[in-house]
């Protein structure tokens, strides 16, 4: 009986497992294998030659290859951290605002917030590159009305990456607000009623009921926000091309440049493996932190 059950379970799982194996695991394993090879993306895999840890040594070396990779890794880290730090609190704030059923126009506000997520990135990039224009951009004109001098935005290595983060936050915050609202709907209203009867004010209710019960939602949001941020590519490719001075050169864009434009498949794969490892470490640490809080 158990044998038959295992067989039927195996048969039912086989299509999904095969698809995942072929389209997810195999490319990942291939990338890891290529990271130990010297290989041009324009040649067959059979032309690859084993170089051991040579590619990893190269991407951490003091040469231009290593310097560019380390800059791209740092840029990606800053971009991801800033995006998550801004998106999560904003999504909770917007979620709380929109969740208030008694506020007129709540549904319209929810629609407006989510609509930014549906705008194609090419349109977002075009519009924001004009908004950020140093001389004729509306943002600088608005600042001028407030008596603030023009800002360089995308034209300065100090502000270019942060400007791209703002663009990302603007586009993504609606999606995460919807997730926050979904989390808020799961919190029983009776808890707030009981807290009110016990004399808890709004701030205390938020701190001791809303935030703890939103933790699972926020964990999910954080993981998705991190993965989205690490994969940033379009705004860099469409607006800044990684500049100025490599200040917006994020890893996905850099891997594309090295692996495809320069056809250095081995080096590009080593960079992709490092990106994957960083992501695994980061997400695992986040889950470990959440589990520890749960245990407490």
């Amino acid at each position: 009986m158990a044998k038959a059950f295992r067989a039927s379970a195996g048969i039912m799982l086989a299509p999904a497992v095969t698809l995942i194996g072929v389209f997810v695991l195999l490319p990942m394993l291939l990338t890891v294998w290529l990271s130990f090879q010297d290989w041009s993306t324009q040649t067959p895999f059979s032309d690859a030659s084993f170089v051991g840890l040579g590619n990893f040594h190269e991407i951490f070396s003091p040469t231009s290859v290593g310097r560019d990779f380390k800059t791209a890794l740092l840029n990606t880290t800053i971009y991801t951290a800033l995006s998550v730090v801004l998106i999560l609190p904003l999504s909770v704030v917007f979620g709380l605002l929109v969740y208030q059923r008694e506020i007129a126009g709540g549904t319209a506000l929810r629609t407006v917030l989510f609509s930014t997520y549906m705008v194609p990135m090419i349109a977002v990039a075009l519009v924001w590159s004009k908004l950020y224009s140093p001389s004729e951009g509306p943002l600088n004109q608005l600042l001028g009305l407030a008596g603030i001098g023009p800002q360089p935005w995308l034209s300065s290595p100090r502000s270019a990456l942060v400007s791209i983060v703002f663009l990302n936050v603007w586009q993504q915050v609606g999606y995460f607000t919807v997730l926050a609202i979904a989390g808020l709907t799961q919190i029983p209203g009776s808890l707030y009623e009981a807290a009110t009867l016990d004399g808890a004010n709004g701030r205390e209710q938020f701190r001791f009921i809303t935030l703890p019960l939103l933790r699972r939602t926020l964990l999910f949001s954080a993981v998705i926000a991190i993965i989205n941020a690490v994969q940033v590519f379009e705004p860099v490719a469409l607006i800044t091309q990684g500049g100025p001075v490599g200040s917006t050169n994020v890893l996905t864009y850099h891997i594309r440049r090295v692996g495809i434009e320069r056809a250095q498949g081995g080096l590009g794969s080593a960079m992709a493996v490092m990106l994957m490892l960083s992501l695994i470490v980061c997400v695992s640490a986040l889950f470990a932190f959440a589990n520890r809080k749960d245990s407490e």
Binding site: S133, P134, S135, S155, T240
Partner: peptide
């Protein structure tokens, strides 16, 4: 001024705008 020198993916952008607008 390097802040007036940026180019975009189409090899246009602020560097061109600044020359065109007489800046």
């Amino acid at each position: 001024n390097p802040a007036m020198a940026t180019a975009d993916a189409n090899t246009t952008g602020p560097f061109l705008d600044n020359f065109v607008s007489g800046k």
